[in-house]
Amino acid sequence: MERVPILKIGDILLVSIQVDMSDQTAVQLQDDLAERIVATGCHGVIIDITALDIVDSFVGRMLSTIASISKVLDAETVVVGMRPAVAITLVELGLSLNGIRTALNVERGMELIAAAHADERELAFEDEPDTETTASS
């Protein structure tokens, strides 16, 4: 059985799907990913589907499931690299991949996750000066 590799880059897990997804591969990927998110404590998951020529309802549902799992484990999921032809087909089919964030390429996806994460850090960062100012005054 084929397995989809999961790569860790800094604070992000990168999943590049380059094989045809079967039921087993999908379940395996969900298991592996959940394990890795918990093990590494990453806050972002990027799923790269540049190599996918066909995205049907099955792959669509798999992406939604992965996004939901990651959400529960406090990681932001971004699907990147969708081809124009794939996007057109999805629209024609009426599948809108609800609840999934998308970006044009891996770079933009990383920016997106960094921005979402920066907001959280910013909150923590802004709390300190506030307490300092109140303490000094």
């Binding site: 971004v78 699907v79 999805l90 024609e92 991949l97 970006a103």
Partner: peptide, 12 residues
């Protein structure tokens, strides 16, 4: 609308 939705799916 279709064009806009397709662009959104791609992340734009």
């Amino acid at each position: 609308l279709k064009t806009v939705v397709a662009a959104r799916l791609m992340g734009a």
